[in-house]
Design a protein around this nucleic acid. Structure first.
Lengths: 385, 385
DNA sequence: CGTCCACGGAGAAACGTATCTCCGACCTTC
DNA sequence: GAAGGTCGGAGATACGTTTCTCCGTGGACG
């Protein structure tokens, strides 16, 4: 409103069309300096409330919106977190396909939003020029395959990376995973107690950590209790193959009297296969599968499921990542501000810190020879860090 | 390798620690100017191949990664597209909850990636400071409610906005939707031909376009053929309410002999309700619901579904948006480069251009009094834009 | 022998913000 | 009455690109 001589410098002469108002325009209109505008809007500096509110008013009137790009360049923070999802074929695969990942992604999105960050979906098959063109403060990677080039590259660029699923060979800042070993052991014990004499496994052919750890735990258990392993593996991304594998498993001469299926659709598939072979569940066959879907509460009979608690995982992963982003000054490596557990500070040497989260076994009729009980608490994993 | 005197100016004196290599460092190391490095790496300018490859080599050796923030600031392009999802409670709702949105989001992600863009998930409940802090080239908005403040704000900022679902009062650059009117009419005709005398509707209480247009089409049809409307509405985001509403609908004194359910879970709910009332499907009750899920191929009996073809929608939305982003120079309003249908150019006046996409009715046993036929082609909507 | 053009490339000005440094004026205090 | 402290704010610089402008140098050509 006041005088406020032209502070725009050369800009005034040049194109002065419909461009969005910049901080300079606000400064000029309010009759103050750029510094003052910046301070007033960001709540910094020492300014009397009167000036502060006046500047804000002017900014509002001009419809001023700070340039995110400029701010990012200046501060080195974009407020963006990558969500790396594996792809199958052309499509981002795990993203919405499995209830687990969908839930996890939703929880991660919420958690990030709550702390002022947004998520960028970053398919693993992304062209290098796409994601290298995005200013990321950090990345969440879901179930990284061994030697994921994207993760390696990001990590080397100094971008913090936190993975859902214990990483194979990728260097990561931190990781979060369920205690798959404890979960599988818990299920096998549960089935044994329910009377199972020979427990089979429906597993996958891929090399991701979940499949590998779960299968190994199963095999170790078999070895320990002296049962011959009975399992079928199939490519988990192929829904049709799951039904076939379930059928194969029940068609074996050494047919199991209880089966644990590692993947979400296995419950339905196994149930259908059991019907085809005239097997009653749970009388002739005990069934458990790993799933986040609640359809298994209403199947006939309801099926016992193992929940990996994806929301908890998603939230934890994002919080760890943001802690890493905000806690460590990228340049000096010193903690700034926030309280910050020292274990995340392991810079380079030693394995990245991991967090194991408990699972939950939801017991239903399919694994109970008698009347089913209600939800039961999971076997707590050995108190890992 | 060569001499290449210190071109860093003041930087050399200051902090020279572990900072990532910048374009200046590459220039110095290659003994050329910044301009040359930029041109060499971006394939611009006139440079002999020898220089180009040498510069690239040096850049590679130094592990040079251009700063996305700086590039965005300079070029005004971030390569980022917002994906606005509605929220229910704390969580991003439609994002992964419904098969339609999940499929649509996946297709959109792929399409964007294919054209060099990445998607940022932007819950509608986002704090203003979060998404206003992100440099977006454009935004896809899923099913915008009337007067969506986020959309309005974005549009006013000059960010192109394309919506999935015909927008109510929001100003958008363009929109894509199914021809819900034609779809509903097609279903009602289909049911009539199958012998239905009184067709009921299971609909929602929310005001989104899909619900509104579908319900209106139903009411108009009732009016035209002289049938008394028979419908129940419930809050679509509440799964439990759906089952209750299905029950209510079949408990009415004027019980319909055919029902169309607008939402994905309606098929299961209606089937369960029918069982409770001892109604046989399709003999006593014809059933159709709108769903992208293939579980309805295996229910007992299989249920006829209307598919909205979400992948096609997602792809189209993104392509329209990117066309708008790349086709129009933000400053001059003139088309640059790409071929670009003139209809997107309507700047400000007139309604935004919309595209109607056909749906597909997948006929199964639940709507066929006799033996079911296989998939049937949809009634093509009246050839719109 | 003078001109012009293509070639290869350098310089410097933006892009719009945050922030560090510094400065004047006023007020207090001895 | 001078010294020091606080308040309120201005100036300038840096963030790391892209790109516009311009310049010297040869060779071709008239």
């Amino acid at each position: 409103m006041t005088a406020a001589a032209n502070q725009n410098g050369r800009r005034a002469t040049a194109s002065r069309r419909l461009e969005r108002a910049g901080i300079r325009d606000v400064a000029a209109a309010a009759g103050v300096s750029i510094t003052t505008v910046s301070d007033a809007l960001n709540g910094k500096g020492r300014l009397p409330d009167e000036t502060r509110s006046r500047v804000r008013e002017v900014a509002e009137r001009l419809g001023y919106r700070p340039s995110a790009a400029a701010r990012t360049l200046r501060t080195g923070r974009s407020g963006l977190i990558g969500l790396t999802v594996t792809t199958y074929g052309e499509e981002p695969f795990t993203f919405t396909e499995f209830a687990y990942f969908a839930e996890m992604a939703r929880a991660a999105t919420s958690a990030a939003l709550g702390r002022g960050y947004a998520l960028v979906v970053l398919p693993a098959s992304s062209r290098h020029d796409v994601w290298s063109n995005i200013a990321l403060d950090g990345t969440v990677v879901i179930d990284p395959p061994d030697q994921d080039p994207l993760v390696t590259e990001l990590y080397r660029s100094g971008v913090p990376v936190v993975s859902d699923g214990k990483p194979g060979n990728c260097p990561v800042t931190a990781w979060v995973d369920n205690d798959h070993e404890a979960a599988v052991l818990g299920i096998l014990e549960h089935l044994s107690e329910a009377g199972a004499r020979r427990i089979g496994l429906l597993t996958g052919t891929s090399t991701d950590t979940y499949t590998r750890l779960s299968t190994e735990a199963y095999l170790a258990w078999c070895d320990r209790v002296g049962q011959e392993p009975v399992y079928e593996a199939y490519p988990a991304h192929d829904p049709a193959a799951g039904a076939v594998a379930a059928d194969r498993l029940l068609a074996r001469p050494d047919r199991p009297d209880a089966v644990y299926g590692l993947f979400d659709p296995n419950g339905t598939d196994l149930l259908a296969a059991a019907r085809r072979y005239g097997l009653r569940v749970p009388d002739d066959l005990l069934l458990v599968c790993c799933s986040e879907s609640d359809v298994y509460a209403n199947t006939e009979p309801p099926i016992t499921t193992l929940s990996l608690k994806p929301r908890r995982i998603g939230t934890t992963v994002v919080n760890l990542l943001i802690d890493a982003i905000e806690g460590v000054d990228a340049d000096t490596g010193t903690a700034t501000g926030r309280l910050f557990p020292p274990r995340y500070r392991t810079a380079g040497t030693g394995p990245p810190p991991g967090t194991l989260m408990p699972t939950e076994l939801i017991v239903r009729a399919s694994s109970q020879p008698r009347a089913p009980r209600t939800t039961v608490s999971p076997p707590r994993p050995p108190g890992e860090v």
